[in-house]
């Protein structure tokens, strides 16, 4: 029989938490090895960044949802960190297989990569809890429970001062690396992608414009694809 929305949400939350029980809140041995294999070990930067972003996230969550909800913000962040480590490890294993390399120093020392990945993990967690939802006009902040729309995507981008263009880069790899994501969550991330592609990435100040300018100046823009493709 079809589940009620409450039952469906509770099931999703149980599945997410169950999935992440075996994932630690610290880098696993495998992930720590990837960090140590880097030309510059990113471990300390990763941990420091998580501490800072955790405080920022919890405070902003409390501001958006209610001061008594800062504790829930910390819970969401803790789950997000577990998912972040889990997906990062899966991504690196996949890249190691694809590229036959074990030193991912440039990637793992890129703070934008880490912020994007963490933001995606948190978006998954908040979507699972129903806090980030495009139903009831979430993105346009129209209708529905005000608390549910206040942390709806792209709220997380503002919290982390993250460009939508950079967040977009991790979405597909995230979905590939975490096959246990539910249909609803994948749909949610796909909607985030579409929003970015159609609107947010084209806002003033997006890094996309500078990249397009660089591509144009390098002559790459001459290779134009026919409209059919």
């Amino acid at each position: 029989p079809p589940q009620t929305p409450i039952r469906a949400a509770m099931t999703s939350i149980q599945l997410l938490r169950g999935d992440l029980t075996s994932s630690g809140d610290q880098p696993s041995t495998v992930l720590a090895t990837y960090f140590k294999n880097c030309t510059v070990d990113p471990t300390q930067d990763v941990l420091k960044r998580l501490e800072t972003l955790g405080q920022v996230f919890s405070q902003r969550f409390g501001q958006a949802v209610g001061p008594r909800c800062v504790v829930y913000g910390r819970q969401r962040f803790a789950l997000g960190v577990r998912l972040y480590y889990k997906v990062m490890e899966a991504m690196l294993k996949s890249e190691e297989k694809r590229l036959s390399v074990q030193n991912f120093s440039k990637l793992l020392n890129d703070s934008t990569f880490h912020k994007s990945l963490l933001a995606c993990a948190l978006e998954v967690v908040m979507s699972t809890y129903g806090e980030s939802s495009f139903k009831n006009g979430g993105y346009n902040h129209g209708g529905g429970d005000p608390a549910e729309t206040n942390v709806c995507f792209p709220w997380i981008l503002d919290v982390f001062s993250l460009a939508a263009f950079d967040f977009y880069k991790v979405i597909e790899s995230f979905i590939k690396a975490e096959p246990t994501l539910s249909k609803d969550i994948v749909k949610h991330l796909e909607t985030c992608e579409n929003l970015i592609m159609e609107r947010i990435a084209w806002r003033t100040g997006s890094p996309l414009f500078e990249l397009l300018k660089q591509e144009h100046e390098s002559g790459a823009a001459e290779q134009v694809e026919p409209p059919a493709s």
């Binding site: 990637l107 890129d110 991790v170 790899s173 979905i175 096959p179 994501l181 994948v186």
Partner: peptide, 21 residues
């Protein structure tokens, strides 16, 4: 995978997207 369209080619991955050739 739930009708999601995977656009990255076999030679493309997170390393290329973050300019880590």
């Amino acid at each position: 995978s739930h009708d999601y369209h995977f656009g990255l080619e076999d030679h493309e991955g997170i390393s290329e997207l973050f300019d880590c050739d």
